[in-house]
């Protein structure tokens, strides 16, 4: 279904971008987020950022710098107060809540620091949960979930409950859940924050594999080792974004 949707928005994307045949996955134009108050708190100053398909971006910065604000905006969990955000060529800043929810289900996969796996459900059920909301036909769900778990090398843990898995395995389940819907973008928020160095390595290796397969990744981290894996890196300080590489 993703490919069909991409085809549908393609003409609009080409119009905006001129010659480029495929729109960038992320295209931020003076994106701003401020919180009301006296004076208003600007969490993200006007930001321009373009992430092409297949890019691997790390976002670093100290706590409270605006990293999470940027991730929430990128993940369509929060609305910007100014500027434009084209996700896959679609102007996400103008569409209604329903469409944003649909975009979230179909285009974006999330990986959280605390894994966010349902403790009473099996690994397989946790992964299949994402397919329910993405509108994957029931007949395809099992096969795709198993394929996603094979991709993160957990095909031997299908019927396990998350509580019996190690931290690294749990985060790999979360990654499987994020990629099972074939998203255009994988957003990871401190994916190694709850892991030790060994299991961190597992997850980061997995990210490298996904990147090699052509997936677009944006990883928020304060760990320089994690950031070093990404080919591109930006730093946010006090809501101001600077490109490192």
């Amino acid at each position: 279904m993703t490919t069909a949707d991409v085809a549908a928005v393609d003409p609009a994307g080409t119009e905006v971008l001129g010659a480029a045949p495929v729109p960038p996955v992320i295209d931020l134009r003076a994106l701003t987020r401020s919180f009301p108050g006296d004076p208003p708190v600007v969490a993200l100053r006007p930001t321009d950022l373009v992430l092409q398909e297949g890019d691997y971006l790390s976002i670093v910065g100290p706590s409270g710098s605006g990293k999470s604000t940027l991730l929430n905006l990128l993940g369509l969990l929060d609305r910007p107060t100014g500027g434009e955000y084209f996700l896959d060529g679609e102007p996400s800043h103008t569409v209604n809540e329903r469409r944003r929810t649909a975009l979230r289900a179909g285009r974006i996969g999330f990986v959280f620091q605390a894994f966010h796996l349902l403790p009473h459900r099996t690994v397989l059920e946790n992964v299949m949960l994402a397919t329910i909301y993405a509108g994957v036909p029931r007949a395809e769900r099992y096969g795709r979930a198993v394929a996603a778990l094979e991709r993160v090398h957990l095909e031997h843990r299908l019927t396990f409950r998350p509580t019996t898995l190690s931290g690294g395995e749990r985060q790999r389940v979360a990654v499987a859940r994020a990629v099972v819907t074939n998203p255009r973008l994988l957003l990871a928020d401190e994916p190694t924050g709850n892991l030790d160095s060994t299991t961190s390595g597992e997850v980061l290796d997995l990210f490298d594999e996904l990147h090699a397969d052509g997936l677009t990744l944006a990883v928020i981290t304060h760990d320089d080792d994690v950031a070093a894996r990404a080919q591109r890196s930006v730093r946010i300080t006090d809501g101001l974004l600077e490109v490192l590489r």
């Binding site: 809540e97 929810t101 979230r104 289900a105 999330f110 966010h116 949960l129 994402a130 909301y133 993405a134």
Partner: peptide
């Protein structure tokens, strides 16, 4: 709350 947040992030609407 965490589960609700997760479901919303996975694309569940408020109605769902």
């Amino acid at each position: 709350v965490g589960e609700i947040g997760l479901r919303r992030a996975l694309g569940a609407t408020r109605g769902q």
